[in-house]
Amino acid sequence: MTVDPAAYFRAKLQCEIDVMEVAESEPGSLLVVDTRRRSSWDHGHIPDAVHIPTAQIPAKAPDLIPAGSQVVVYSWGPGCNGSTFAALAFAELGYSVKEMIGGIEYWIRNGLPVETAAGTIQSKPDALVTAHTA
């Protein structure tokens, strides 16, 4: 079977979103879901994100995520495919879903805010991964 590279990448881009596009999106236009385990969520997460670990999506999403929402899922980072499994779970439930590439690792490396038990923190942007300045 021959795959058309242009078609593959066109389809892939329909299912992905980067951290800066999420950060700069119109408030309320995206419903961001952290799919990591509780201890990771407690360590720090994107402000206003909803926490649903991947394994719990089929049971909890229908009660927590309104139908018709544009869902964006994330996990740790590029070395983790947890958000891919989460995106599949949401897609199988009929949600419009995108996977945030880079995960919370690149959210933090871009100098974006992270909510913790101690409050919201923001790191200096890593110049190696972003031109964004805080």
Rank of each mutant, 00 (worst) to 15 (best):
M1Y: 07
T2I: 08
T2W: 05
V3R: 01
D4C: 07
F9H: 02
R10D: 13
L13A: 13
Q14H: 02
C15F: 01
C15M: 11
E16T: 06
I17V: 10
M20F: 04
V22N: 04
A23E: 00
A23S: 10
E24G: 09
S25H: 11
E26W: 06
L30M: 05
L30W: 04
V32C: 05
V33W: 07
D34V: 05
D34E: 06
D34T: 06
D34F: 00
T35F: 09
R36A: 04
R36C: 08
R38S: 10
S39H: 15
W41N: 09
D42Y: 03
H43V: 00
G44Q: 00
H45Q: 10
I46G: 03
I46Q: 03
P47T: 00
P47R: 14
P53H: 09
Q56I: 00
I57T: 08
P58W: 11
P58D: 14
A59P: 00
G68F: 13
G68S: 09
S69N: 11
Q70T: 14
Q70S: 15
Q70C: 11
V71Q: 13
V72W: 02
S75F: 12
P78S: 12
N81P: 11
N81V: 13
S83T: 13
T84P: 00
T84Q: 12
A86W: 08
A87W: 08
L88K: 15
L88C: 02
L88I: 13
A91P: 00
G94Q: 12
G94W: 10
Y95Q: 14
K98T: 14
E99N: 15
M100Q: 05
G102E: 06
I104H: 01
W107E: 05
I108F: 02
N110E: 00
G111C: 08
E115C: 05
T116V: 03
A118G: 05
T120E: 08
K124A: 11
K124S: 10
P125D: 05
A127I: 06
A127R: 07
L128T: 15
L128E: 15
A131K: 11
A134F: 02
